[in-house]
């Protein structure tokens, strides 16, 4: 318990050093903007991303046959997180006409192809799984 209290106190000190650094090196407008981004990230996750994921999972559970659910969840996690990582590239916001070496790839086409590939993989995996479970079912009853 004493060790945990010491670790916790260390954490508080590290955080306070960060807060002081943040506070003393910028003007009020910049601080307000940083604060907005700080709160905005949490709001975006808790009030937008999390409910969207909850909704998607409900849709998967209601609409998809059992055999397709696991592949769909795997696809959702891998493709969903990759898409979030790729948002800055997909948005094209950093593109500068004078510098073709920055963001040089066709990210949007790649993403669409990737989505298509993932959908095909989910369907194939679902088909294989449903065939396997029906085979097992026939063996049990037959």
């Amino acid at each position: 318990m004493r060790a945990r209290l010491a670790i916790g106190a260390l954490g508080v000190l590290l955080g306070l050093f960060g807060a002081r650094t943040l506070w003393t090196r910028q003007d009020t407008d910049q601080l307000t903007n940083a604060g907005l981004w700080l709160v905005g990230g949490v709001v975006l996750h808790d009030l937008v991303l999390a409910p969207v994921v909850l909704l998607l999972v409900v849709v998967v559970a209601r609409l998809l046959p059992t055999a397709y659910r696991a592949p769909a969840v795997v696809a959702l996690v891998v493709l969903g997180t990759l898409t979030i990582v790729a948002v800055p590239m997909l948005s094209g916001q950093g593109v500068r006409p004078d510098n073709p070496t920055l963001l040089p790839r066709d990210y949007r086409t790649t993403w669409l192809v990737l989505v298509a590939v993932v959908v095909v993989l989910v369907v194939v995996a679902g088909l294989l799984r449903s065939r396997r479970s029906s085979v097992e079912h026939t063996e049990e009853t037959g």
Binding site: I7, G11, L14, G18, A34
Partner: peptide
């Protein structure tokens, strides 16, 4: 600065 805040809060969380 936010790196220090994040790591500080993480250390508290681990404790």
């Amino acid at each position: 600065a936010m790196g220090w805040i994040a790591i500080g809060a993480l250390v508290v969380h681990i404790a």
